[in-house]
Computed example of a mutant assay.
Amino acid sequence: MDGFDNLSASEKAEATELQRLIAIEQQKAQFQAQVHNFTDVCWDKCVDSPGSKLDYRTETCLVSCVERFIDTTLTITNRFTQMVQKGTH
């Protein structure tokens, strides 16, 4: 039972579309939260004293920090995907 049994076909389609839009918005929120996390951690790690512009060392540190976070996130995501796929076969 999916909770849509008493709905017309058009109402079911609307409900399905609404669920899809909600899922998209949740993904956007997760992405924004991840960006916020990168910003906090990398800022604390790389920026000694804020100025009017970033010096080369600070910019390089920030880029490297974010790239490490992205690589780590992708590695963990891929590992979980592999675990789930092995568990379903």
Rank of each mutant, 00 (worst) to 15 (best):
K28M: 11
S10D: 10
G51I: 13
L18A: 02
T39G: 00
Q34G: 09
A23E: 05
R57D: 12
H36M: 06
Y56W: 00
T58R: 01
Q26C: 08
V41R: 14
Q19W: 02
C42Q: 07
K53F: 03
N37L: 03
E25F: 08
A33M: 02
A9S: 15
L54I: 09
D5S: 10
S8L: 02
S8F: 00
K12R: 15
E11R: 06
T39M: 02
V41N: 11
D5N: 13
S49M: 13
S10V: 05
F38P: 08
R20F: 09
W43Y: 15
S10G: 06
Q32K: 00
K28D: 07
K12D: 15
L54Y: 10
A9T: 14
K45G: 08
L21H: 09
A9E: 15
R57A: 15
Q34V: 03
A29Q: 11
P50S: 10
D5A: 15
A29I: 08
I22Q: 10
K12Q: 15
L21C: 10
D55P: 03
C46W: 12
A33K: 01
S52V: 05
D5H: 13
D48S: 14
Q26R: 14
K45L: 09
I22D: 10
N37M: 05
F38K: 05
H36F: 01
A13H: 05
R20L: 14
L18P: 03
G51K: 12
Q32D: 02
A29R: 10
Q32I: 04
W43S: 15
D44T: 01
V41D: 12
Q27K: 11
Y56P: 00
F38C: 05
H36A: 09
Q27I: 07
E25G: 08
Y56G: 00
Q26K: 14
S52G: 03
K28S: 10
T16P: 00
C46H: 14
T58W: 01
D5K: 12
S8E: 10
A15Y: 07
K45M: 06
L54K: 08
R20Y: 11
D48N: 11
L18I: 00
T16K: 07
T58I: 03
L18Q: 06
S10Q: 07
T16E: 06
T16R: 05
V47A: 09
A33V: 00
A13G: 06
Q32W: 01
L7R: 12
S8A: 09
Q27D: 11
F38W: 13
Q19Y: 01
V47T: 05
D48M: 09
A9L: 11
T58C: 03
K45P: 06
K53E: 04
F31L: 11
E17M: 05
Y56H: 02
F38M: 07
N6V: 07
H36T: 03
R20K: 15
T58Q: 04
D48T: 13
